[in-house]
Amino acid sequence: MQAPAHTRALIEIDKLNLYYGTFHALKNVSMEIPEKAITAFIGPSGCGKSTLLRTLNRMNDMIAGTRIEGKIAIGGADIYSKEVDVETLRKKVGMVFQQPNPFPKSIYDNVAYGPRLHGISGRKQLDEIVETSLRSAALWEEVKDYLKRSALSLSGGQQQRLCIARALAVEPDVLLMDEATSALDPISTLKIEELAQELKDRYTIVMVTHNMHQAARVSNQTVFFLNGEVVEYAETEKLFSTPRDQRTEDYISGRFG
């Protein structure tokens, strides 16, 4: 078992406050997210997990009325400073959404979309990226003969793996997954969990999940949120076996949430 406490922190969040208009959605959040490991965010609905996740690739920028205080550094660079180019940040910090959202294009064009955005146009190079990304997302064997088919013809689980492949195609360092399995059946969920396990050797993964068993199964570190605050964060095993906070214990034993 990998001990995230010993690995270097890739993302440092320091006294982060986020407001939607007047609503205080994240309160004084501080944490470190270790490199090449899986960090899980758990907590009841509406506690701010997705909000925090979206601050990491600045998708919150597009929500009008959002205001941020505090600091987030990735690899030591403050991602909200003026020098940081949002597009480059998002290329480095990929995201997989709750609902599978492949474009209404072919499977190939979905995966090639990101590389094309960033200026790769050579046919051979794209073919290669598409294949390696689909292999990394454990989808290649299932779709290699149908690359020209519409992505919308895939099953939900396949679509989600396609979205993962699409995210991997731009070679990110971090992969954010917001309840990426909640719309899927148990078998697809399992596949994606296995996939996450494989990917964590190469990527830093942050996943939001409603499913505590999932957090316990796949993550190295778990963060428990309540009403926009971090109640507790620790190595997953520790958090689930010996929670320090009473509220954490209540939540993981199913007493509220």
């Binding site: 597009m62 480059t88 290329k91 474009f103 209404p104 979309y113 955005l117």
Partner: peptide
């Protein structure tokens, strides 16, 4: 055009211009 397509494009590092012409208009 559903917001989720735009989100996907922005999350891959697409600019507004790219998102509009490569995703939204084709959709």
């Amino acid at each position: 055009v559903p917001k989720k397509y735009r989100d996907a494009s922005y999350a891959l590092g697409g600019t507004r211009f790219q998102t509009t012409f490569k995703v939204v208009l084709p959709a």
